[in-house]
């Protein structure tokens, strides 16, 4: 039946071509795990490739909690070569599990010592290097606030007031790095007992917990919520895009975490991984981070950013990443025990 053959053959050919296209090979491909905001991933890869066109980056991106859990789950059969842009607290957990390959990138000495694995000061190669700081912030929708009679908060404490009931959205710390830095900062600010007591009160006002750290701010920006507990990068960007939000930096102090990078132990592409690490600590890379983040690892690079307060460094709390990393599992389990069931799936 000729009509049949005419129908099938071009399809077969098309299928074959499609499959062939997908298997086009590159020189070196690095699988890079990241929690960097997806807005910027393409830009990161392009800037790096401008300097090193022979290395292709295959991004695997998800929320901080997901990427961390995934790395831990793959411990015995690692899929990632490099981690570029994950919370330092998470990297400390991985270091504890001996999953990171120590390496001192060329030019690491140029970085602010706070942004480099403290082991480097003790003479060891650093297991990780920092990139930038990402800072907690509150997104407040001015239009919806007025409509619902919900005033702009000034502090974390304000969020527990009765008029905020059902209007606050925050990320789930189990999946979101932003969520965890909030929880960790409250526990560090007020101590464990008062910290949990604060979250108990806050929980009563929470409409829901989201999967990602961006979502609360996005939801506030579209008026689905009045208040989204999020982070400064997303808040500033949404405001620039015209969302009717005010970015609030609570007066008690801002929790923050460091975005950092590391080589995964056991990678069989060590050369390429080290090349990438060298670039990650470069001035050029830090200028790139500064396009989204006000505080970066390379001293003297940072330029002020739209919608960020100029004194942001002073308002960041004195965060203890070591504490946050060591207690991560325990805190998350406790959080889950107390509040799970109000989480967005």
């Amino acid at each position: 039946m000729p009509t049949f053959h005419r129908f099938v053959q071009p399809t077969l050919v098309a299928g074959a071509v499609a499959l062939a296209l997908s298997s086009a090979a590159h020189a070196t491909e690095l699988t890079v795990y990241t929690a960097v905001e997806s807005d910027d991933l393409q830009k990161y890869a392009e800037r790096f490739n401008a300097a090193h066109p022979d290395i292709t980056i295959n991004w695997v991106r998800d929320s901080t909690g997901v990427i961390t859990a995934r790395l831990l789950a793959e411990k015995n059969n690692p899929q990632a070569d490099v981690i570029w842009g994950l919370a330092a607290t998470s990297l400390l957990v991985l270091e504890e599990e001996d999953m990171l390959a120590r390496y001192a990138p060329e030019g690491v000495d140029n970085l602010d010592a706070k942004f480099v694995d403290p082991a480097y000061q003790d003479g060891e190669d650093p297991a990780w290097v920092g990139m930038d700081a990402w800072v907690a912030a509150i997104c407040y929708n001015t239009i919806e606030g007025e409509r619902h009679g919900v005033p702009m908060p000034a502090s974390w404490e304000d969020l527990t007031q009765p008029e905020y009931a059902g209007h606050v959205i925050m990320p789930n710390p189990n999946s979101s790095g932003t969520g965890y830095l909030d929880v960790a900062s409250w526990l560090q600010l007020w101590g464990e007992e008062q910290g949990w007591e604060y979250m108990d009160r806050l929980h009563n006002n929470i409409a829901r917990y989201t999967h990602s750290g961006s979502a609360p701010c996005s939801l506030a920006a579209t008026g689905e919520a009045v208040i989204g507990v999020s982070f400064a990068f997303r808040a500033a960007r949404l405001k620039s895009q015209g969302a009717p939000i005010e970015v609030v930096f609570p007066e008690e102090g801002l929790g923050w975490d460091m975005e950092a990078a590391a080589i995964v132990e056991g990678t069989n592409k060590l050369d390429a991984a080290q090349t990438l690490m060298d670039w990650i600590v470069s001035r050029e890379a830090n200028e790139l981070y500064n396009e989204g983040y006000a505080v970066v690892a390379y001293p003297g690079v940072a330029q002020p950013i739209e919608n960020y307060p100029s004194d942001i460094t002073d308002r960041m709390i004195d965060a203890d990443f070591q504490w946050a990393a060591v207690n991560r599992e325990r805190v998350l389990a406790e959080w889950q025990r107390r509040y799970d069931g109000k989480t967005e799936q």
Partner: peptide
């Protein structure tokens, strides 16, 4: 339920949350 379930969890989203969210 993933998109619109809010805090209302069902079995299918629990699988996702356990596996992707917590790698359990």
């Amino acid at each position: 339920p993933k998109i619109i379930g809010g805090q209302f969890s069902v079995l299918a989203t629990d699988v996702y949350r356990q596996v992707v969210g917590q790698q359990n």
